[in-house]
Amino acid sequence: MKRMLVTYMTLGYPNLEIFYQFVEKSVELGTDVLEIGLPPKYAKYDGPVIRKSYKVVSSWLKDYINPLKELRKSVNVPIVILTYLEDYLSNLDSFLTALHEINIDGVLFPDLLIDYIDNYETYVLSIKEKGLKAVLFTGPSLPDNLIKIASKISDLFLYYGVRPTTGVPIPVSVDSLIARVRNLVQNKLVIGFGLNDFNDLRKALSTGADGVAIGTAFIEEIEKNGLQSALQLVKTIRGVLDEYS
């Protein structure tokens, strides 16, 4: 079975031109799902690198609809928007409708099962009623039974973050974390959140991950060595994924 590559990029980072080039090329190079971040007011569960990228774009990015519309025209893989539910509590319906109208496929709210645990089902229903896919975000602090339920209702795949925050290499035993959830999850299991060295990546794949989500590593690469080098990294990761197919 082909392993999934979920590529994350903050909308418009570092500028619109490079952003489009990166995501379009990354799809050509084998990205299966695009995860696009909209800068939230408070990125509570993101690490320093992604937070910095939000800061860079939020100084000029006022409208997200048009850039997303453009993006939709040029790529044909599913596009999932990553942002925080907290910012859309008062206008969730219109936000979801707007995304659906421009043919965005789904949304992923990292704060849903953490801060809105008492009525997450209602929110998942709202997302699905608007014709969008609800991708659920889980992690090690979730009790087993909740991971089971979440895996059943999550669309496309279940996102499982192995670290408490993105991009900070907190030492965790990736393989034992995945071994624990693998048999709870009756869905595609995509591992992310701070998975940024090849050792972790291979461990995740050999313990049964159906795919990986990578973000921080691409942003860092663009920042340090530029677009071409970030695309090379996409290619390398695709290669590792294919070894396990």
């Binding site: 408070y42 509570k44 569960y45 690490g47 937070r51 009790p143 087993d144 925050t165 900070v168 290499p169």
Partner: peptide, 27 residues
């Protein structure tokens, strides 16, 4: 006790607009 808690334990966070990452500092 973490896996036996009745609800998920809310994770540690960095404050909004943090000038440095406290989670990184722990590391």
């Amino acid at each position: 006790i973490i896996p036996d808690l009745p609800k998920p334990l809310p994770p540690p966070r960095d404050p909004p607009n943090a000038e440095f990452s406290r989670i990184e500092l722990l590391e």
